[in-house]
């Protein structure tokens, strides 16, 4: 199967480029990159970057401004659940489109899927 599997690529470690990325963040946005503030933010940023096909996501970036759609939200949340073990509702990403807010929402409400 060569389709866009949500769990095909493990989440990158902080600071590690996403291999499947094809677009540089700075080609999309003029704002300055701010690195993740926690390991969870870093791992969620990695998932967002991988699904959106960009090299990195700043903690201040809006999912929508990076081209995110409802389908992307579904895929991002599915991958977060599979690889990070957190519950994540796609609507949380739509409500909290900035990475740091989305990560905070997951930290507060996305209890571990595996318990």
């Amino acid at each position: 199967m060569s389709g866009p599997r949500d769990d095909a690529t493990p989440p990158p470690e902080p600071g590690v480029a996403v291999t499947e990325a094809c677009v540089r963040r700075e080609d999309l946005l003029d704002t300055e990159y701010e690195p993740p503030d926690s390991e969870l933010e870093a791992r969620i940023a990695g998932v967002e970057a991988a699904v959106l096909g960009i090299d990195r996501v700043s903690r201040t970036d809006s999912f929508f401004e990076l081209g995110g759609t409802s389908l992307h939200a579904v895929r991002i949340c599915a991958r977060i659940e599979r690889t990070l073990g957190y519950r994540a509702l796609p609507m949380w990403l739509i409500e909290c489109d900035v990475l740091q807010a989305f990560a905070a929402r997951i930290a507060s409400e996305g209890m571990g899927v595996d318990g």
Binding site: G3, D6, S70, L71, A73, P90, M91
Partner: peptide, 22 residues
């Protein structure tokens, strides 16, 4: 049609539909 397998397609389609159904 876009090369998801059936299980993946069903799960993704359901989650996507629920967003709009909300």
């Amino acid at each position: 049609a876009g090369s998801y397998d059936e299980d993946e397609a069903a799960g993704t389609a359901s989650a996507l539909a629920e967003l709009y159904l909300d």
